[in-house]
Design a protein around this nucleic acid. Structure first.
Lengths: 194, 194
DNA sequence: GTCTATAGACCGATAGAC
DNA sequence: GTCTATCGGTCTATAGAC
């Protein structure tokens, strides 16, 4: 929608990020121009630079916000048993990712478009999340309830399996998310079972 | 390397595809220019159009060739038992994908840069490959050796888990590919076990 | 088959008026 | 805070000489 001149800083800032998120997810960071983002927001291209120093920061901020949300939303519960921790992680991961397909897509697909410094920061955040699962698996091995020869590999295998839901799951399809969750939990549980 | 004028059609054609593959994998299709590809090959940009009608066809041909190689390399063995079929599929998938990281990366990451017609053709090829695994899983369920409530979902879960190897595996790392193969086969086997 | 040159268009980012 | 205008550069694809 076209817009006349005026002051809208509290509205326009979030709108810029929302538009960038949708466009980056659909066409890819490199294929999206600042002019396209501006058109979606309803401002001219130059006005975007009141909200971001450059295009790269726009991508970085979206990815960082997503991973910080992820870490904040998954509160690891210390002391609880590994099996309950693994079930909680599995169901949480599927739900959280299903609610944010665009953010997830960007966080996986646009890593190569980050500057080296930004890439390092994003990878560190992702690693912190992976460590949550690795910790659960190691605790389960020590407790004798999981049979996992290499917890690091098992962590990567489980996360890849769970994140894969986003490539095919669509709301209103053959299965509800709760059904999908149950099927994946059964597979995860068995895959690390004694 | 710079090149003087002359006839090199049998050499240059494959070199164009090789250069495009490496550059698309590293920087992404949208971020790579025809000039970059030409520079890598050692010709001027205009000469590329002797080998491809346009940039889109270059991407499409790389993805189609990869998926046709995949289907040709995985000969399904009819009549053999489901457990052997699943182990063969698992080990084959890991090996085949580990040998072609660039092709795999492109085939997953650049789908949105295909024209609608090309996308449909690529997706049909991928679907044919997924059907191979689904057939194995259904046979195992009928034979009573697998416990899989939804073979379609289990197919997606297993393939996502196996393809995930490519995101972290590096030759010469802590584990050999044979060790990785064994760990993943154990997890796949258990995840569909009774 | 490759070259040079170029068309027609788009890009990120900035300057200065309001 | 947004606008218009623009700089200096990029791009895909094509034309025509050799």
């Amino acid at each position: 929608m076209a817009r006349t001149a005026g002051s809208h800083s509290e509205i326009t800032g979030p709108r810029v990020r929302t538009a960038a998120l949708a466009l980056f997810a659909q066409h890819g960071y490199a294929a999206v121009s600042m002019r396209q983002i501006a058109r979606e927001v309803g401002v001219q291209a130059g006005a975007l630079y009141n909200y971001t120093p450059d295009k790269q920061s726009l991508l970085f901020d979206l990815m960082r916000a997503h991973l910080e949300d992820l870490l904040a939303a998954h509160a690891p519960r210390d002391g609880s048993d590994p099996m309950a921790g693994l079930e909680h992680f599995t169901r949480f991961h599927i739900q959280f990712h299903a609610e944010r397909p665009d953010e997830v897509f960007i966080a996986y697909m646009e890593l190569r478009n980050l500057s080296p410094e930004n890439f390092a920061e994003i990878e560190a955040l992702r690693r912190r999340y992976e460590d949550r699962l690795e910790t659960i698996l190691r605790a389960g091995v020590e407790a004798g309830v999981f049979a996992v020869p290499d917890p690091k590999i098992a962590t990567m295998a489980v996360i890849a399996m769970l994140t894969g839901v986003n490539t095919w799951f669509r709301e209103g399809g053959r299965l509800s998310l709760a059904e999908v969750e149950q099927i994946y939990w059964d597979m995860v549980r068995k895959s690390v079972a004694i």
